[in-house]
């Protein structure tokens, strides 16, 4: 039997009595446990911390929504495990689909933003430099390597000591941030 069985069972039974404090304690404890499992099991999928946290939240919501269906005469932990497994697989499938769309899109978006302009390379580089100051250093380095120095994703990843996939994600993040910055600038 899992060491969580007794405290978690008490937490869910307390919920049925309307004890929000005990239920909140259970949810926190369960979330912490899920966070560790997701981090451990899904490490090779290279989920970002935000994505891993999304998975944890989806499991929490699923358990919360179905909590009345747990039969108190049965062990709780296997019940939670089955739901967590289902929702995690579901979330990972969705994240994979998103990642595919994200990688497909980013190349075109990048070329549209940085290469379309036929102005001189110096001018172009200055524009980019002035734009990317809003980015954290890691993202700046990635953008500089790809957009200014024209390195391929592979080369840039090697130079920055990361993987191609991680670099693409970083580029995507910076793009999102840059677009947000531009939009904000327009609004003012």
């Amino acid at each position: 039997m899992s060491m969580h069985e007794i405290p978690w069972r008490e937490g869910l039974l307390a919920e049925r009595r309307g004890d929000a404090m005990a239920y909140e304690a259970f949810l926190r404890d369960f979330a912490a446990s899920m966070r560790r499992i997701v981090a451990m099991r899904l490490r090779r999928l290279r989920l970002t911390a935000d994505e891993a946290e999304d998975v944890v939240q989806e499991v929490l919501i699923a358990v919360h929504a179905r909590r009345a269906e747990w039969d108190a005469g049965r062990p709780l932990v296997p019940w939670l495990n089955a739901i967590a497994r289902y929702k995690t697989i579901d979330a990972v499938r969705r994240l994979r689909r998103q990642a595919r769309g994200r990688v497909d899109l980013s190349e075109e978006e990048w070329s549209a933003i940085f290469v379309a302009e036929e102005s001189g390379r110096e001018h172009h580089a200055m524009d980019v430099e002035s734009l990317i100051v809003v980015l954290p250093p890691g993202q700046q380095a990635a953008v500089r390597a790809v957009a200014i120095e024209g390195a391929s994703h592979r080369e840039a990843a090697d130079r920055l000591g990361t993987t191609e996939g991680a670099l693409r994600v970083t580029l995507h993040r910076s793009l999102k941030r840059l677009m947000a910055a531009v939009r904000q600038g327009d609004g003012q």
């Binding site: 049925r16 239920y23 909140e24 949810l27 929490l60 919360h64």
Partner: peptide
Amino acid sequence: VRRLAREAG
């Protein structure tokens, strides 16, 4: 978690 806990019972 806080939001879900408020729905206890």
